[in-house]
């Protein structure tokens, strides 16, 4: 019974997601923007939610469900990697090394930078308290 009552709410949430998706795509196409349409839709929705001040319940519920299924939704695209034939062995090797080494380096640098920035900000705040 409660599901029946929740249905219009969910339908509205799903409609909002689709509406913002298509609006983003239309804007991106109309103005030949380099930003992918759905990403533009996401930013528009974020802006709308900030202005609106809260998240409609149906939208929040539908979003949680769809994000929980994200791996499933992305599965067709992911499976495609096993069917790729236009890359050479050398390309695959390059890709593997760049992914492994590159990710380790950028991860370390990002973390060290962030720690330093946060510490400096905390120290500054600390000084202000002493004064």
């Amino acid at each position: 019974m409660s599901r029946l009552k929740a249905f219009p709410r969910w339908l509205m949430g799903a409609g909002l997601l689709l509406g913002f998706d298509l609006t983003g795509r239309s804007l991106s196409a109309a103005f030949a923007l380099p930003v992918p349409g759905p990403v533009l839709g996401m930013l528009l929705l974020l802006l709308t939610l900030i202005l609106y001040g809260r998240i409609p319940r149906g939208l929040a519920e539908v979003a949680v469900q769809i994000l929980r299924l994200l791996v499933l939704i992305l599965l067709p695209a992911t499976v495609g990697i096993y069917f790729l034939q236009q890359l050479s062995i050398r390309d695959w090797l390059t890709l593997a090394i760049a992914m492994l080494v590159g990710t380790l380096i950028s991860f370390t640098l990002t973390a060290l930078l962030l720690q330093r920035l946060l510490r400096r900000a905390a120290a500054r705040r600390g000084e202000a308290h002493v004064e």
Partner: peptide, 9 residues
């Protein structure tokens, strides 16, 4: 597309 938009939440 809707899944990308849902990341806004």
């Amino acid at each position: 597309g809707p899944a990308i938009v849902a990341l806004a939440i």
